[in-house]
Amino acid sequence: MSETLDLKAIEKRAFRATHQDGLWDIYIGGVVLSMTLLAYSTDSEAFPFMRFGIYLLGLGASWLIFWAGKKFITAPRLGQVKFGPQRKRRKRTLATVLVGIVLLQAIIVAWTILLWANPAWATRLGIAGSDPDIERLLVATVGALFVGPSMVILAYFNDFSRGYYIAFLLSLAVFSLIWFSQPAYLIIAGLIIMIPGVVLFVRFLRQHPLPTAEARHA
């Protein structure tokens, strides 16, 4: 008998139902598209702060759409649910792992900045990049590794299967952005992430009409 498996499947299906509105995809797509503004760098730029401000505005707008969508559109249609202690444990583990990853990334960034500021140290350590192409390849790989694995871990712990292809797209976009110095890759990745989210959102609205007043206030 496979009762245990069936119960797990029921729980997983219930949990996954909370991701079927496509709002995560729209949010991540929005974040990636906002990042494009930062990726554009021209030396003669007169208003770097304005560009950064627009980037922050994009991030804020993405978050606002996500939050308002969940609160005013998804929740009344899908209903409220609280998951058991196992999910809470997974959430805590995810938070711990992500904090660890962010710390590791911060150390790598700080170390890189230190080495760039002090080329003599890099020479002494024997890791000075004589070939700029190899150096850029290294930076592109590290950049891709910054975003990809974090997203994979997020997808795994949240049973968010679309997160795996989002992770792949993010890694590819960041790698291409650094390697080819072309922000268009971020725009393409952002759109490829966002468009299925919009499709899912429309489908969600069609499949989940607002429940009757008696069901809402039952």
Partner: peptide
Amino acid sequence: MALLYVIDSADFTFLMNQ
């Protein structure tokens, strides 16, 4: 009961959907 057994709690709308 199977659904409520694997989650902590839910409202009517969620149970109707599931």
